[in-house]
Lab assay of single mutants.
Amino acid sequence: MEVRTIKVFTTVDNINLHTQVVDMSMTYGQQFGPTYLDGADVTKIKPHNSHEGKTFYVLPNDDTLRVEAFEYYHTTDPSFLGRYMSALNHTKKWKYPQVNGLTSIKWADNNCYLATALLTLQQIELKFNPPALQDAYYRARAGEAANFCALILAYCNKTVGELGDVRETMSYLFQHANLDSCKRVLNVVCKTCGQQQTTLKGVEAVMYMGTLSYEQFKKGVQIPCTCGKQATKYLVQQESPFVMMSAPPAQYELKHGTFTCASEYTGNYQCGHYKHITSKETLYCIDGALLTKSSEYKGPITDVFYKENSYTTTIK
């Protein structure tokens, strides 16, 4: 009895394709271990004539594949690729409408935090270190965002349907971005203890939790000093293409032309909904596939993004 075979390709990165001759009487799992086709788990399936010449994702289970996976995804987590594939199996079914010149995501599976993050990423200057993220990001900007969303979920250790947080998501993504040249110098002034300067680099240099107003941050924000008295913390120097200011959701007025974009969060910790506000020729609110415009805006804002380049204080 002759062994019926077909020729397929296996890959971990969709760049390096490895030619395989597979036995049609055995499952993919018996031949390769966990195997995925377009995100779908085909591990328990036997090869079919229609699979001839198709590319299958496999887990990096030998040295060659491990090197290829690390170079593309910059992670050695053995569960990463499987999590990416199972997320992709959902995100490829989502709709990605162009809204006001940006790629958004039609609401499904509690994905409003991903839509808000995706919209924000198209408006701030950011370059990702893992080629996987950078490639998928370019495709997302062009309207094909399924891979990018699935990668975000995998890097953030999230599953489809789980509630997510924009600030946490951005923080994970910033860790995989090139923020080497970003720098922030802060000064804390206390009447009792004097003053202390701190220099922050990388992710810490672009994120701040405690106030939404970048102007206020430049002037000074009140913080408790270690001595128990009130101290003032203010920005001395900022070198970065953008800054992200966050605070627990509270009524906040966004003035046209003073910011790049913002995240609105309605609801409580267990259950809520994100919308995205962007400042173009007027203010726009993007909620999944829905767009509304207004000249002014007041609502429960939790993150505001500002364009920056270089700032030095005039406070002496």
Rank of each mutant, 00 (worst) to 15 (best):
A289P: 04
G39S: 14
E204M: 04
K233G: 12
Y265W: 04
A136E: 14
T258W: 00
L235T: 02
K95I: 15
Q123L: 05
L163Q: 07
A69P: 03
D303C: 01
K7M: 14
T199C: 13
V166P: 03
Y214A: 05
V236E: 05
R4P: 13
T75Y: 10
A87V: 02
S50F: 14
G272K: 02
Q216F: 01
T55I: 14
T232K: 07
S50Q: 14
Y96V: 04
Q197G: 06
Q270K: 11
K106N: 06
N268Y: 06
A87H: 09
T11M: 05
L179Y: 00
Y252S: 08
T64E: 12
K158M: 02
Q238H: 00
D41F: 02
V188H: 04
Y138Q: 15
Q134W: 03
Q270V: 12
Y113W: 15
K7N: 10
P130S: 05
E168R: 09
S213N: 12
K92I: 12
E281G: 03
Q31T: 14
A231M: 03
G288E: 01
G257S: 05
T43R: 11
A87Y: 03
C190G: 01
P131S: 04
P47L: 05
V189A: 07
M245T: 02
L102P: 04
Y96E: 01
T226H: 14
T27Y: 10
F128S: 05
N187R: 13
T278P: 03
N100Y: 10
K280M: 15
G164M: 01
V206Y: 02
N111P: 01
V236F: 05
K95A: 13
P47R: 04
K95D: 15
K46E: 12
Q196S: 12
W107R: 00
H74S: 02
T258I: 08
N157S: 07
T314M: 14
M209P: 01
V67N: 14
T103Q: 08
P60Q: 10
G210K: 05
C193H: 05
D165F: 00
R184M: 02
K219V: 12
N147H: 12
K218F: 02
H273N: 06
I286Y: 04
Y73H: 03
K54R: 14
K46M: 04
S79A: 14
R83M: 07
L17G: 10
Q30C: 13
L151S: 11
L119H: 00
S294V: 15
T19P: 14
V58I: 13
P224D: 13
D13S: 09
T10A: 10
C285Q: 09
E264R: 06
Q237D: 01
K183N: 03
C271E: 10
N89E: 14
S295F: 10
K183C: 10
Y137L: 14
T120V: 08
G202I: 00
K218D: 04
Q251H: 14
